[in-house]
Design a protein around this nucleic acid. Sequence first.
DNA 1: CACACGTGGAT
DNA 2: TATCCAAGTGT
Length: 363
Amino acid sequence: MSEMPAPVLEPEAFQQRLLAWFDQHGRHDLPWQRQRTPYRVWVSEIMLQQTQVATVIPYFERFMARFPALGDLAEAPQDEVLHLWTGLGYYARGRNLHRAAREVMMEHAGELPVASLDALAALPGIGRSTAGAIVAQSTGRRAVILDGNVKRSLARLHAVEGWPGRPAVERRLWALAEHYTPHARVVDYTQAMMDFGATLCRRGTPDCGHCPFADVCVAHARGEERRFPEAKPKKALPTRTTRMLVLRDAEGRVLLEQRPARGLWGGLWGLPQFDDPETLRTWLEVHAPAAELDPAWPAFHHTFSHFRLEITPQPARVDGLDSIGETRCWYDPANPPRLGLAAPVKALLASLAPFALAASEGA
DNA sequence: CACACGTGGAT
DNA sequence: TATCCAAGTGT
């Protein structure tokens, strides 16, 4: 209890103000709010992790069209799941979702264990906040969430000092979230908290003029809305360089390699990648001694959250490979297989399509 | 606990 | 254009 900052309102008053605002201004027609089944709520919550609503909607619709039920997802090959995840980012979410679906089939008779917060959180990809959201949204039972929107709103209302990523700060915010969460209208309350943060108590431009808490908000009283929550400590962005081999056969197909299951673009298919020219040369000697190297194409870069990658495409031609194994395949731009591709690779392959067309026309 | 993990929108 | 960072989790 001593962990919790002084609340600005009694829980009942807080809930009443928030829900009145939500009834008027909340979002009531998002795709996952129709047919609010545990499965649909789960998929939406995973896609929405660190990802904005507008970005998620088309991915969610495609995913549901292909995998209408949990069993459909469990039966699918991982490649197809990652194919539908391509462009959404944080691909561990897709791998974990797929793995969790199979786990639910085997250990929970095909039903998400929404009766137990702990059982949910034991599934890969579901943490404390997502477990709370799934329970609250799909069953209406009381469960607490603490996502970015809730963190920002509560930090402002109570002028909570410190970056919310710090465990001590996060504990205070959990205590506040716990304090305000009602037993009734839980579905609406959790949605309301997220809508409030996303559309009114926004990061850069909070709309205090229409805020139902403006009269009690500590940050607003101090005129310091923008100071809360405190920003993450920044650090320099390192740059890494790599070469991507664009090895094409006589039919214009491109050799792809499946990336390791963990790490960057884990489980996705990409161009063979080499940190230095030496490794590239050795690889070619072993796998494609007959390959003819063309001059490298201009480098381009891709910026990630934690580093910047400079990519030099290295085009080459070869008649074929004797054996490409399980973790390689020939990618035909005219008839692309349904597998996951990293964004820069997808863009690079798309730029190759005219070549493939010209090659097939010439043949 | 600090860091890795992606992409696109907002300012 | 550069920077920040969004419905977090896993290691």
